[in-house]
């Protein structure tokens, strides 16, 4: 029982990071109708910046701010200077360019910083708080949950309660009509990328202290799990990303804890396969079949 509670709470904390990353995939999908396969590599670059800033200044918070800023900048630049050039007649072109980008970024990081894992420390203790003798989540896990909740809440407000959010949604769902109504659609697409990569960078930054350290591939598995979560939740659905992200996190923790670490990736693969075959539009999507 205690073990179950511990695994559940750990899974929730890991799941919050997954949900955040899945949300970043949803944002860019809604804005540009693409699944960004370069998300992991794009998210790790800002974490390197954060690492450098934190090492230089000693402040985690400056590093975090730098990661967000770099992520936003990177998202903007990649959309403006690269993705915009991709031929639109073939839906695969975007994916292939993203793969090329992954190779350039990860190899570039490895050349610049070497292959070593760089230890990254959490700003809070990772010792689980005990409630009635049962170890629950650590202050750092709580911090992750709170940050994830705040960011998701903020994005929900932005999308649902502001005029900018309305324009973003309109540009995503009906680009032609929006254009006629005076929405600057290309700008909205760029903004989607900006928000998306900043969110992904934040997720990667939150993930790194729980692992071996920072290296160019630090977010690869995160991307695969988050992709699974985003598909399970429905690529259109921020709420779906949240619920599915938490669920996948818990699934991975339970499988690792009760079966073995080796069983976790096949479990995620199985979940993804089943959902894609049974309900490819995701469990939370409102729209019917998908043609992207």
């Amino acid at each position: 029982m205690e073990r179950l509670v511990f695994l559940l709470s750990t899974g929730l904390a890991r799941g919050a990071v997954l949900a955040l990353f899945a949300l970043s995939l949803v944002i860019v999908y809604r804005a540009a109708r693409v699944v960004n396969f370069a998300q992991a590599a794009l998210a790790v670059v800002p974490v390197y910046v954060a690492f450098a800033i934190t090492s230089a200044t000693g402040s985690y918070w400056l590093g975090l701010a730098a990661a967000l800023a770099t992520g936003a900048l990177l998202g903007t630049v990649v959309e403006r200077r690269l993705m915009r050039l991709v031929p639109q007649d073939n839906p695969l072109a975007g994916i292939i360019v993203a793969i090329g980008l992954v190779m350039v970024l990860q190899a570039g990081l490895a050349i610049a910083f070497g292959p070593d894992h760089r230890p990254v420390h959490a700003p809070f203790p990772q010792r689980p708080l005990e409630v009635g003798g049962v170890g629950l989540m650590s202050p750092y896990d709580l911090f992750v949950l709170v940050v994830a909740a705040v960011v998701m809440g903020g994005l929900a407000l932005l999308f649902n309660r502001t005029s900018l959010g309305l324009q973003l949604r309109a540009a995503a769902f009906a680009p032609e009509t929006s254009r006629l109504l005076g929405v600057r659609v290309p700008r909205m697409v760029t903004l989607g990328w900006t928000l998306s990569i900043a969110t992904a960078a934040l997720a990667a930054l939150l993930l790194v202290p729980t692992g071996l350290g920072l290296d160019p591939h630090a977010a690869d598995v995160l991307f695969v799990n988050a992709f699974a979560a985003a598909v399970v939740g429905g690529l259109d659905s921020p709420a779906g990303a949240l619920v599915a992200g938490l669920s996948v996190g818990v699934l991975v923790a339970l499988v690792t804890g009760y079966a073995s670490a080796a069983a976790a990736p096949p479990a995620v693969l199985a979940l993804l396969t089943v959902v894609l075959l049974v309900r490819p539009q995701g469990l939370f999507a409102a729209r019917e079949a998908r043609t992207a």
Partner: peptide, 27 residues
Amino acid sequence: AAARLRGPYLAGLTLALVIALPSAAST
């Protein structure tokens, strides 16, 4: 699966397959 899926979904599924290969080999 591919018969029912398009572009990014199939790509993502096959990507997850690659990631799962070492675990599958040991399981």
